[in-house]
Amino acid sequence: MSTSAIPATGPSAGTTARPAATARSSRGGRPVDGRSAPSGGVGAERPSILATAVLLLGALYCLLPVVWVLVAASKSPDELFSTFTLAPSTHLIENLRDLFAYRDGLFVRWAGNTVLYAVGGALVSTVVSAAAGYGLALFDFRGKKLFFNVILAGVLLPAVILAVPQYLLFAEVGLANTYWAVLLPSILNPYGIYLARIYAGASIPREMIEAARTDGAGELRIFARFAVPMMMPGLVTVFLFQFVGVWNNYMLPYIMLGDDSLFPITVGLSTLMNQGASQPAMYTTVVTGALVSILPLIALFLLLQRYWQSDLTGGAVKG
């Protein structure tokens, strides 16, 4: 009910007839202006300076570190600790050159690894979650309830706790310190399975599946050709959650990887940060690296913003 992704459970009768996909993209499950008119006439719409000021203060707080890194990345190593911290300088190009030249382009390698782990891991994870969600929502089979409850328990389990035993097991089979050590554990996303089940239940008309079966289409084909496209907006959200999850997970690659050519950016920057104590020039590299790695992400987030309007808790009420 707290979600726009499940119009069937939403309170607004007007949207229930529409397919979930379009209801989602309208960002609210009800028309944007649907409430402003009845909720109190002119008085309630009076602009409030205080309300605006509070929001802007929040925005300022959120922008501060981003502004700082933009400025700091333009400073030479000497200036970083000497000139006023928010006064820009002219060394951005040099710093970028140094960053990309650092140990024959190690940073570029880290960036590539990050894309592999976060995009690759999240893509496979989304496919696995979509299939499981579809299976749970549209099929009856023995053990289904048990499986779903176990998955739900997995949602509440802090994944980071698994890092040490996962490492020990991966070391046992000789996979520690390889790409697989970070990629494989990233495939499982209990929360993604849970969301996919909700999306599948809400967006796939059963009659359509039955009709396709009657026409003789195979089960896998029905899934790929009909179910996946209908679940797509929800799957983008599942992908984004997992993408952020992998990109944010520091402990797993930190534990699993010893060879710095396999590091993602996060682990790489943290090792450079540790070197800063003995070589302060390294801080400039860290700062420039931080800037280069967050800019594309911020751009990506702005582009995909509407997919974040969905829920975290949709099933909290439904389930």
């Binding site: 959120c62 922008l63 981003v66 952020v244 520091y250 992400l297 911020i298 987030f301």
Partner: peptide, 13 residues
């Protein structure tokens, strides 16, 4: 949008 922005930045950074 601005208040949401930090979500794009991983904890390490």
């Amino acid at each position: 949008i601005t208040i949401f922005l930090p979500y794009a930045v991983p904890a390490v950074i």
